[in-house]
Write a protein that binds this DNA or RNA. Structure first.
Lengths: 112, 112
DNA sequence: CACCATGCTACAATATTTGTAGCATGGTTA
DNA sequence: TAACCATGCTACAAATATTGTAGCATGGTG
């Protein structure tokens, strides 16, 4: 898969709109998970693999390359970590944590 | 793929944590796109297909089933639309729109 | 009844993801 | 200095997910 740069055609849209590139990226397996798990601090390749529990090294490396090219993740001395932009993005999606708990509650109620 | 219900094992986690179910769901091809495109109003199956530009009917139907089971999308007289919970979720991710524009700006600057 | 449009299924072709093995590099430690 | 690690990462075949096209079934409308 090619890296979904804003401005280029991506899966789901030929428009080049940034949001479409972003939705393509985040819709790829593990992208969101990697960002989510990196928020708890920098991690080495192998540690990130463990945080993700079941990601294959092949795919982890592919996703890392994409996230680096799109400046959301960087590799410094301490290991992989979110860039400034990556943290900004995380800040937007972080409410998903508490939202998902309420959602789970509702689903549970309704299944009774 | 099984539907990622909170409480069950999902791709990426055996913990049953709601956030992991959500990240699994949103990380599936087109999930985010469908939610994004439904925000602009209810749509019939075929119209939703057009909004998504390139989704296959097979997959659209699969995703719809998942999103319905998880109470994010419903099918009423007017067609498919976001549920109350679906709109709540959209509200969380909607800042991605303007964020992605700034992100695209930065990527553009840096590529000079 | 002929004609549409709709929601959706079938299914083979294609693309993505996994799982396992293991290579290459760069420290330790004996 | 050589036998050990752990690390980042690649290879590659098997398993899964997604696409693309065709078209069926149903419910209007003229």
């Amino acid at each position: 898969m090619t890296i979904p740069f804003p401005g280029l055609e991506v899966r789901g849209s030929k428009s080049g709109k940034p949001i479409m590139a972003l939705l393509d990226l985040l819709g790829r397996t593990w992208s969101l998970g990697i960002i989510w798990h990196l928020h708890s601090g920098p991690a080495t390749f192998r540690e990130l693999q463990q945080r993700c529990e079941k990601i294959s090294p092949t795919l982890l490396n592919t996703r890392i390359k994409e996230l680096k090219a799109l400046q959301l993740v960087e590799c410094k001395g301490v290991g992989y970590q979110l860039t400034h932009q990556g943290r900004d993005l995380f800040d937007i999606i972080s409410p998903l944590g508490s939202w998902s708990s309420r959602w789970a509650q509702v689903l549970k109620e309704d299944s009774k």
